[in-house]
């Protein structure tokens, strides 16, 4: 997989399958793209962390009972003047979002090794919204201020 994010272009649609290398490649391409746009290091890490955690969330929870080849996550990235908007969409059968509760995530973060992903997104993004449609799947919509 090779990803090139052009600094002239501020809107991308990317599909990735369950491949850990793809996530690293995407993260590295995002980092290079945002560096070119003179975004500071902390913001780059915030964007990449939100993106990574939303993808893991889809891979680990939504696709728990899905065949490997069908595990696809669609990502939309759009940069506006003062923020970046990211949508991570899965088509998994598990409705993981039904168990999503911020207070429980805070508890899990301290007592469990897992359950920190959405807590991170919630802490770093200025807005986060989870939506579901039976025919379109589930998507996490987040905005990170730049």
């Amino acid at each position: 997989m090779s990803i090139k994010l052009d600094k002239e272009n501020h809107h991308f649609n990317i599909s990735i399958a369950k491949n850990l290398n793809d996530i690293r490649i995407l993260r590295s391409a995002m980092g290079a793209w945002l560096e070119d746009l003179k975004i500071d290091e902390f913001k780059i890490m915030s964007v990449n962390l939100c993106l990574t955690e939303a993808i893991y969330n889809a891979m680990l929870h939504a696709y728990k009972e899905t065949k490997e080849k069908d595990k696809v996550v669609d990502i939309k990235i759009k940069k506006e003047k003062n923020f970046i908007e990211i949508i991570v969409q899965d088509y998994g059968k598990i409705e993981w979002f039904k168990n999503y509760k911020l207070s429980q995530l805070k508890e899990d973060a301290i007592t469990q090794d897992h359950g920190k992903g959405l807590l991170i997104v919630n802490g770093l993004a200025s807005t986060m919204e989870i939506k579901n449609d039976k025919n379109k799947g589930t998507w996490i919509h987040m905005r990170i201020n730049l």
Partner: peptide, 12 residues
Amino acid sequence: EEIKKVLEITHL
């Protein structure tokens, strides 16, 4: 500071 902030928001 970036990593510290991540540790903070995850309560770690």
